[in-house]
């Protein structure tokens, strides 16, 4: 049941990120054609800005689920199994806490922008709801970090860096 819900959450996030990405490309394309013809798209860069933010945050849960982080871990490969296990739990706990804090920060920022009534430069629309949306996606990412905590022992040895997907997955 939960697995099914998770799958749907990821699908929704992926769809939103995908739409944002395609939208960014399309806006850039339309503006670049229109400008020399005397019809620049007003506010093109602000459309792209908002799409970019939604794109990054919507993709955050996917990064967490697939463990696609850039990590350094200079010495952690040399640890003995016991220490390695401790390190894994320590890192995973810290990571989950960090995501929770990250989400909290986004809501905090949204509250500040709301309080100051901050508007965007071109369209002069309120910024707070957008940041709120970013916060919601970060909460979802935190949820997936929590889920990963349960599977730490069964996971294969983590790879040093996110690699492009294997063809067979």
């Amino acid at each position: 049941m939960i697995a099914k819900i998770n799958l749907w959450i990821i699908r929704i996030c992926t769809t939103i990120a995908g739409i944002a990405l395609v939208f960014m490309g399309a806006i850039a394309f339309v503006d670049s054609i229109g400008r020399p013809l005397g019809h620049p798209l007003p506010g093109a860069s602000e459309y792209v800005s908002f799409a970019l933010m939604i794109f990054f945050f919507a993709a955050l849960p996917v990064v967490v689920r697939d463990d696609a982080h850039i990590r350094v871990g200079l010495f952690s490969d040399l640890y003995r199994p016991r220490l390695m296990r401790i390190e894994r739990y320590f890192t995973a706990l810290l990571e989950t806490a960090a995501f929770a804090a990250f989400a909290w920060m986004m809501f905090d920022q949204a509250a500040r922008l709301e309080r100051f009534g901050t508007l965007s430069v071109f369209f002069e629309i309120p910024m707070a709801p957008w940041v709120m949306a970013a916060g919601v996606f970060t909460v979802v990412a935190t949820w997936f970090a929590l889920i990963r905590l349960r599977h730490l022992d069964t996971e294969p040895h983590p790879h040093p860096h996110a690699l492009p997907d294997e063809e067979d997955t």
Binding site: R35, G38, P40, S45, V121, F122
Partner: peptide
């Protein structure tokens, strides 16, 4: 620049172009 000056440019019949 975006904002008031772009509005003025539009008012004069020209096409404002904004960028970084």
């Amino acid at each position: 620049p975006p904002g008031a000056l772009s509005e003025t440019v539009r008012l004069l019949g020209a096409v404002p172009v904004n960028s970084e």
